[in-house]
Amino acid sequence: MTRTTHDLAALFERMTGDEKHTWAAASTVDVLWVLYDRVLNISPDNVDDPDRDRFLLSKGHGPMAYYAVLAAKGFLDPDLLDTWTTFDSPLGQHPDRVLVPGVEIGAGSLGHGLGLGVGTALGLRAQRRESRVVVLVGDGELDEGSNHEAIALAGRLGLERLTVVAIDNGSASHGWPGGIARRFEVEGWHSATVDGRDHDALHRAFTAHHPGRPSVVVATIHAEEL
């Protein structure tokens, strides 16, 4: 059956027990939907195609929205959502690529997805593939120093097929003075800051061309929405 964004809430709510990360998960739901519904060349039929686009959920905390979107798009049997976190379930509170077809990386410990994303983009470029690589990080996750090694490197290497979407829901304990985008811009990235609930604005940001450099889309989420 064809599911729409309106089905996500019901799918999301089938996973209980990680309410601490409901905020983190809810912050990502619109971005994930736009990426999987309108932007990325990813489907249950091409999970092993080397030319598929790659989506890397770096911020592995609160994967309820991710699993809900994967279920809505046919990667997962929705009934699996009811099993999550149990011993025999492939769905845990941090995703595992080995257990779930279509999940590109195992995540949980923060600050790993961007380095993997840079390497993935380099590997695809070396093989002359046109696939995109999109890495989702959180503003709190950006505190991890490993991200800044990867941000600088991607800028220097001009990885134009790499996009980072930074969910800015104000989680970083010490904030990002001047905004998150500035941290990327100084390393040569193209940036756009958009309302993280505005599907059309997200789509425009994800599909804009920026030859010769990677891009960051800062998706702002306001606390009162959550």
Partner: peptide, 9 residues
């Protein structure tokens, strides 16, 4: 991290 990404491709 880059090595891991390269290997993933």
């Amino acid at each position: 991290g880059v090595a891991g990404g390269l290997a993933l491709t």
